Amino acid sequence: MDRTMPARLIDPATMARLTALADLDPTLVVDDFTTPEATAALARTEVIISCWGCPPLDATTLAAAPALRAVIHAAGSVKHHITDACWDRGITVSSAAWANALPVAEYTVAAVLLANKRILQLGADYRRARTPRTPGDNIGNYRKTVGIVGASRIGRRVLELLRPYDLELLLHDPYITADEATALGARAVPLDELCSASDVVSIHAPELPETHHLIDARRLALMPDGATLVNTARGSLLDQNALIHEARTGRLHAVLDVTTPDVLPPDSPLYDLPNVLLTPHIAGSLGTELHRMATAAADELARYTEGLPFAHPVLPEGIHRTA
């Protein structure tokens, strides 16, 4: 992992647990598998605990790690470092994607509820005018419709958190049946219908070739006047220029935690549009939330030492449609 990660990721109690479970040197942090230090460690390594910044585990690296049996990823996606060579070798992989999904879902729920209350606009108006104005009749969350795009870990958690509210929940996911959507508390609908019917559309699909610009100009045009788009997935899933056009007219609102590029250039109009809330990719685990992912990794290491299967395995047959 990145050399700065352990101090932020692993609290003292979890580090003590990890060192009790395995022969682990807390000072050995590898971000390059080709160094003499890394090569010496790989020769005797059975389990790698990885996080953001882990280099690829390719065939050359695996050849230097004959005892390697498992990778426990203390973060979300493993696509950056788990290669086909890992699957060919039969290495078992675990991910803390479920743990990283929790703060993203919490951010999303907050965005949905505040969007329907028009907090961003009413707060700005109040600050500017120094006197409250009467909100429109359509403000509020009662009986509003929220459309969730993607029954991912995050999408499912968002649905779970929104169920207690008086909302109609719609779901689009090509791999989910109507009965499965009902079990999640939502109604399965085609994506065009979801966009047309929703007061808030929230994107939770993976970044894949087939999801590029999934929400394009046509689907943005389907959204009702005053609707809000929330994107905590990846910037590529949204036609950003089309959104800018819609937002400039004032017709749509947006909450964007991800953009294309991830850090926008200083002249991007998204910075200045009053109906767009930009945050710098903070929906995922930050601060104390990182410790949850380290705890998840320690739990998986404990299962491994007991000869138990991982609780949160990553399987090669499903990786093509996950983030």
Rank of each mutant, 00 (worst) to 15 (best):
I148S: 04
I148P: 01
I148A: 01
V149Q: 07
G150S: 10
S152C: 07
S152I: 00
I154D: 04
I154H: 01
G155H: 01
G155L: 06
G155T: 03
G155F: 00
R156V: 02
R156Y: 02
L159G: 00
L159T: 07
L161Q: 13
L161V: 07
R163Y: 07
P164V: 09
D166P: 06
D166A: 15
D166G: 10
E168H: 13
E168I: 06
L170T: 04
H172R: 04
P174E: 12
I176M: 14
I176Q: 04
A178R: 15
D179C: 07
E180W: 03
A183Q: 15
L184N: 00
L184P: 02
G185Y: 04
A186Y: 00
A188I: 04
E193V: 14
L194F: 02
C195W: 03
C195N: 08
S196T: 15
A197M: 13
S198Q: 03
S198T: 11
D199Q: 14
D199N: 15
D199C: 11
V200H: 04
V201N: 00
V201Y: 03
I203G: 02
I203W: 01
H204E: 00
A205I: 01
P206F: 04
P206R: 05
E207C: 12
E207Y: 11
L208H: 05
P209Q: 13
P209V: 10
E210I: 11
E210N: 14
E210L: 11
T211L: 09
H212S: 13
D216K: 05
A217L: 08
R218C: 09
L222N: 09
L222D: 10
